[in-house]
Amino acid sequence: MVAGANLSVTDMRRAARHPVDFPTIVEHFSAGDLNLHICNISAHGFMVDNADNLNRGDRVIIRLPVVGRIEAYVIWTRDERAGFQFERIIRLDDFVEIIDTLQPNPRLRRGR
């Protein structure tokens, strides 16, 4: 039997995703520290492009600018990618600050 989070996820795939290039170390609840590379982020979650040993339902704690430590759950995996959902939605004003920090090039930011 596979243990993991029982997630009830509404379809938030239309949430604005912002491209970023953010290597980070996350705390995985069973595997310890993992090096992940976040390639896009939204107020609801983020996607990594180097998710070798992650499975749906895995939980991690990630440290982001502005909001600090926040828990996230793996919602999907495909090839080397994985999508995470934050335990809570990040407030809009905090999210704007995160994007300004993670994506300083204004030409790569999505319109607000």
Rank of each mutant, 00 (worst) to 15 (best):
N53T: 10
N53Y: 12
N53G: 00
N55Y: 03
N55V: 00
N55L: 02
G57F: 00
G57M: 00
D58A: 12
D58M: 15
D58W: 15
R59M: 04
R59F: 00
R59N: 04
R59K: 13
V60K: 15
V60E: 04
I61A: 12
I61Y: 14
I62F: 01
I62S: 06
L64E: 02
L64F: 01
L64K: 07
L64T: 03
P65F: 00
V66N: 14
V66R: 11
V66I: 14
V66T: 13
V67D: 01
G68S: 02
G68C: 03
G68F: 00
R69G: 03
R69T: 03
R69V: 00
I70H: 04
E71I: 03
E71T: 05
A72I: 03
Y73D: 11
V74I: 06
V74R: 11
V74C: 03
V74A: 06
I75R: 13
T77G: 13
T77A: 10
R78Q: 10
R78G: 07
R78F: 04
D79F: 03
E80K: 13
E80N: 13
R81N: 10
R81I: 03
R81K: 14
A82S: 15
A82R: 15
G83K: 11
F84G: 05
F84M: 11
F86A: 09
F86I: 08
F86M: 08
E87M: 08
E87A: 09
R88F: 00
R88G: 07
R88C: 04
I89S: 06
I90G: 06
I90K: 09
L92E: 10
L92S: 09
D94Q: 08
D94E: 07
F95E: 07
V96G: 09
V96C: 05
I98A: 07
I99T: 13
I99Q: 13
D100Q: 15
T101N: 14
T101Y: 05
L102F: 01
L102K: 13
Q103A: 07
Q103N: 09
